[in-house]
Design a protein around this nucleic acid. Structure first.
Lengths: 210, 210
DNA sequence: CCTACCGATCGGTAGG
DNA sequence: CCTACCGATCGGTAGG
């Protein structure tokens, strides 16, 4: 692993745990095992390094999302199973790539003021839109085939987002270990609230909507 | 308004917007209109000021919670209306006391490392427990009288917490204005997933539980 | 990648 | 509440 990669890795970890203002360039340099001034061989400023790390994180998110959904589409499962898989995948991502997801949430919700617009641009270009669109496709499919109750797919995506954000907040507060039951309950409550009221309507096409 | 109150007010606002590390004592002093060293007439350190502000915020939360629930109990409404009132009250609290709620969320989810334990203690003593217990009472009542499906009240509280945290995350990301529809959809989805499956069972007592 | 250094600001103190 | 000051650290630069 070369020096630049090590800088990026330690910066990612420290920014995730301590935030922008809580992380100094000397701390990053110390974690890498070099002098602070050596960072300036790779970046012209702290902001440049920070934004670079944010872009890296956003791209990981994007790549993971695209990879997951392209596999999911191949399998052609019922909407219920597809949504459950999205749910499980996303929850697992927060365990497997904890620093990535923690940093992403931190800068999205509490960005440093002078970088807020840059961060929002990066988010819009990469993470937010693709995730929303992929989900909307699944919900549209579910409404059309009667698996789901009739509602605009965008609204259903928002309900799914509430579920995910609510659980992730609990995980950030209590840790992943204490929230196993919450995943189970949260999913079943979510599903019971959006599924079609009458399974016999499936594929009749009579409730195809807007 | 005396100097101490003004220090607390500006510190609360700045800590909420910029966090612990992003806020210096000189910034607070400047906002108040005094010199930095004058803060030390009231507090012995930055940490002491910070913790004092956190305690103040926690106590506002606690007081608001107790006041609201004591009024709610007097009214003796159906559980559906009670829960909806809790929902509306909490959402309104995030508009009326935005700096209080924003700071509280910030320090709960991303506390400065060396103060994490202090913050958790304050939270446990004031906010978290009382809110949970008051809600659990309402859910227990709903399960007993058949308004709600049969489930442990603690689990139902957790589902309610998911709803609230999910919506508040959306509000932090998009602002309060763009989430009006989300409140409506979120509530109805939540309620449809927990209400009793058959209204005719109300007050029969046959589904009273654990 | 290093040493050596810059002015500005950090949290905090002395003394009034 | 102020002026005056402390050592440490901040982001950043010069020069190799």
């Amino acid at each position: 692993m070369n020096a630049l990669d090590r800088i990026n890795k330690e910066a990612l970890n420290l920014f995730a745990e301590r935030g922008y203002y809580g992380t100094s360039l000397s701390m990053i340099a110390k974690a890498v095992g070099i002098r602070k001034s050596s960072i300036y061989a790779h970046y012209n400023s702290k902001d440049e390094l920070f934004i670079s790390v944010i872009k890296y994180v956003a791209n990981i998110y994007k790549a993971e999302t695209e990879q997951f959904f392209s596999k999911l589409k191949e399998q052609n499962q019922p909407v219920e199973h597809q949504l459950f898989q999205v749910f499980c995948w996303y929850m697992q991502l927060w365990i497997d790539k904890k620093d990535v997801t923690k940093l992403w949430r931190r800068v999205s919700v509490f960005p440093p003021e002078h970088l807020e617009n840059d961060i929002k641009s990066i988010s819009a270009e990469t993470v937010a839109q693709s995730f929303h669109n992929e989900l909307a496709d699944i919900f549209r499919q579910g409404v059309e085939n009667g698996e789901l109750r009739n509602a605009p797919s965008g609204n259903l995506v928002n309900l799914f987002q509430i579920l995910i954000d609510g659980i992730l907040t609990a995980r950030l507060l209590k840790g992943n270990e204490d929230t196993a039951e919450l995943l189970h309950d949260g999913w079943h409550h979510f599903w019971s609230g959006i599924k079609g009221t009458d399974k016999r309507q499936t594929n009749t096409g009579e409730i195809i909507n807007v």
